[in-house]
Design a protein around this nucleic acid. Sequence first.
RNA 1: GCCCUGGUAGUGUAGUUCGGUUUAUCACCUGGCCCUGUCGAGGCCAUAACCCGGGUUCGAAUCCCGGUCAGGGCGCCA
Length: 470
Amino acid sequence: MLRTHTCGELNKALVDKEVTLSGWVDTVRNYGKLAFVDLRDRYGITQVILSAKDIPDIDKLRNEDILKITGKVKSRLEGKENKDISTGDIEVKASSLKILSKSKDLPFEINKDIEVGEELRLKYRYLDLRNPGMARNMKMRHDTILFLRNFLHKEKFLEITTPMLTKSTPEGARDYVVPSRLHKGKFYALPQSPQQYKQLLMCAGIDKYVQMAPCFRDEDARAHRAPGEFYQMDLEMSFVEQDDILELVEGLMIKMVEELYPEKKITKIPFPRIKHADAIKEYKTDSPDIREDKKDDNELGFCWIVDFPLFEKQTEEDFFHGAGKDLAPSHHMFTAPKEEDIKLLDKTPGKAKSYQHDMVLNGFEIGGGSIRIHDHKLQDKIFDLIGFTKKQKKEFSHLLEAFSYGVPPHGGIALGLDRLMMILLGKDTIREVIAFPKNKDARDPVMDAPADIEDYQLKELGINLDKKNL
RNA sequence: GCCCUGGUAGUGUAGUUCGGUUUAUCACCUGGCCCUGUCGAGGCCAUAACCCGGGUUCGAAUCCCGGUCAGGGCGCCA
């Protein structure tokens, strides 16, 4: 057995017990004949005392070596307690030491207050994650996602995993595509969101679906937007109206903050529901920061934005005076128009409002969703309004066909988990809450992806690279 | 695709505005030595750097041009 206890759990109750600890050398304070080693794992730090007469090679110990230490737990000498660590009233007097793994010189120091350049941190992310601050971010991300899952589980949601290898569909973001070996010349696409699958699940009678879903979009990065891939808490419900969705998610956020972030205060409960037009008028943005003190990281200003226009304005004329192929859905093409506005679709679709809802937190859009269209004739009409060709429509025929066999009214929402965590933990970039983030150019600095593949792989896929244009 | 900012030892930095007393600052790391109550241990010593290419100049880390890498923004993100 490599260890009997972690480095964060020893206490006075264990005094005089023999324990075995394994962990990383956080610091060594060496007197030659006596050395103090702070042994660290993700649970904490324990001070270990090494005496040269018991342990021959204490001079060899370096930061980040991994040690296995067996010894007796002792109370600290009177007045020598360290209040800064959880194990500060005890220490372990080592009777044996084994170096399980040596560390060579580090590219940067771990667990010091020095701000290391992000490029280096990302290249050696496995070292960066040893820092207690980063370890905490990972822990809080886990706790938060676990809370969301448990809450929704109690509400009878099923988590269902939907395919990662799926089909490219027109419009939207650029797809990441994956060549098929068995069907040379054809490509899968990684999902930009599980949107169509979750609507099919509604047709399947899974009236409450959720997924902590990876989503892939080949678009450029921002400080608050991860390039390539990101995670969403994606959910969908049948037989609901917009209020049901908003109330569920609002309750979830309030409870989550209470349980996991008790030091934080929510600006307004219930969350204000702001009409899109009013947000633009009052705040000049559709993602307003409603906090009283905009510099206070412990304030959480949640609000809802509702009554979005169904279509985005492409030109002033199209927007106000009728259909045109330049109309684009402001959310996505499955978003339902408000019932009273359906009659506007024929002459002035630009005036139609929709059942879209965005959740905004501290000035960031952290989620969006809608009540969906569940009438295939209406869906077909929307396709026409955004100028879909017959071929483009055919890409969605499976969905329209599914709608012809009994489709419940349904709607849902997706929350961006990375961005939510960034705000909850008060970080400036999304990379601080992602274990192995891509850099700004969507490269993985640890693995150095994307990368070349072997010629035989290309051959097997039937792909010739156009080397002149690379 | 476009715009902006930055790049000094292994790490973090000073110096760059206004070119020259700089042998390029300091701390940590690393290597060596001393030390039995430290806790970001302490003391002494040592090693180690101006992103790449071109230009201006008697002289460039410093000014100019190009490149490259990184970050931020616009476009993009149904």
